[in-house]
């Protein structure tokens, strides 16, 4: 259990009359890209928000980086980086200043520039683009910078909600490449959610399929394809969700 970066046991969460999670259990191994897949409203974002310490579950056990939530959320926050779905940038700040701001929050003014430079490198954006206001960026550029901002922090766990949602083929490709290289070079762990089965199959080492607030199945994509007799993860997904319905 200690080798897991995040562990959720029988977690439930309700928002008023809506039940988002109904006894979800999940294990995220260290050093992998873990993909959370599931239909709309399955509970993916709630799960990511719980792991990110932003939402407190009604019941169940949540351990992130060996620390239990919600008691040790401050310790966890210093070691994770979270990028919500469609997270924006500060539009009146330049791209560089957006990086510098988060670098200052995590590392203080002393190391901020050094960390921001790393972010600039990861983003792959040109210097002149980095010194333009983020409000002038295309959606793809803004997303690359936002992901680079999360990756530069050297966090033990990076949580990305729909990192390529709404992006064109080129931007999505660049981001997948960024994520693969990052995990390969750093050995850190990424949890991401996505609707794009091809993307998940391509970059994720481990996949968890959530439907109606519970984890239906999990494992490496190849194992899931073999287990559910699907040629692609998409076929696996459809057969499981279909069976579930």
């Amino acid at each position: 259990m200690d080798t897991d970066i995040a562990t959720l046991i029988n977690v439930t969460k309700k928002f008023g009359k809506v039940t988002a999670l109904r006894g979800l259990s999940l294990r995220v191994p260290k050093g992998v890209i873990y993909g959370l897949i599931g239909p709309n409203g399955a509970g993916k974002t709630t799960t990511l928000r719980i792991i990110s310490t932003l939402v407190t579950p009604d019941s169940g056990i949540v351990k992130v980086l060996g620390h239990e939530l919600p008691h040790e959320k401050n310790v966890i926050r210093g070691r994770i980086a979270y990028l919500p779905e469609e997270a924006g940038l500060y539009e009146r700040l330049t791209g560089w200043e957006n990086l510098l701001y988060f670098a200052m929050i995590y590392f203080g003014r002393g190391r901020a520039e050094e960390v921001a430079k790393k972010g600039a490198y990861i983003s792959g954006l040109k210097s002149e683009d980095l010194h333009r206001r983020a409000g002038e960026y295309s959606k793809g550029m803004a997303r690359r910078l936002a992901i680079a901002r999360a990756l530069m922090l050297d966090a033990d766990l990076i949580i990305l909600d729909e990192p390529t949602s709404g992006l064109d083929v080129f931007s999505s490709y660049r981001i997948r490449k960024m994520l693969r290289e990052y995990v390969k070079n750093s050995g850190k762990t990424i949890i991401l959610s996505s609707h794009n089965m091809l993307e998940v199959e391509e970059i994720c080492d481990y996949v968890g399929l959530i439907n109606k607030g519970i984890l239906i199945t999990s494992g490496p994509p190849s194992m899931l394809k073999a287990k559910y007799h699907g040629r692609t993860l998409e076929e696996v997904f459809i057969s499981i969700v279909g069976l579930g319905e």
Binding site: R77, I80, E86, Y106
Partner: peptide
């Protein structure tokens, strides 16, 4: 509304 707050809230900023 500009969707920058959620990321900020997940940082260690007190």
């Amino acid at each position: 509304e500009r969707k920058t707050f959620e990321a900020l809230l997940a940082t260690p900023l007190p």
